[in-house]
Amino acid sequence: MWEVIKSVLAAFFGVQNERQRHRDFQHGKPVAFVAAGIALAVVLVVVVAAVAIVAAR
C-alpha cells in the first residue's frame, strides 16, 4: 500500500524514476492506483482549502 501511495505522490509531484515505474507496472493493481489517485486529489483539495482558510484569517 505504501508503495502505491508513494507512486501516486510521485505522480502528483510530477517526477518518477524508471526503476520505480517498472516496479509499479509489474506489481501494482490498477484499481489501487486509481483509488489512491482520487483519494490524494481529495486530500489536496482539503489541504489547499485549509491553507486558504488559515490565510484568510
Binding site: 505522480a11 502528483f12 518518477q16 524514476n17 524508471e18
Partner: peptide
C-alpha cells in the same frame, strides 16, 4: 523524463 511527462499530464 518520459515517465515524468506522463505523470505531469495526469496531474
Amino acid at each position: 523524463g518520459y515517465a515524468s511527462m506522463v505523470y505531469a499530464t495526469a496531474s
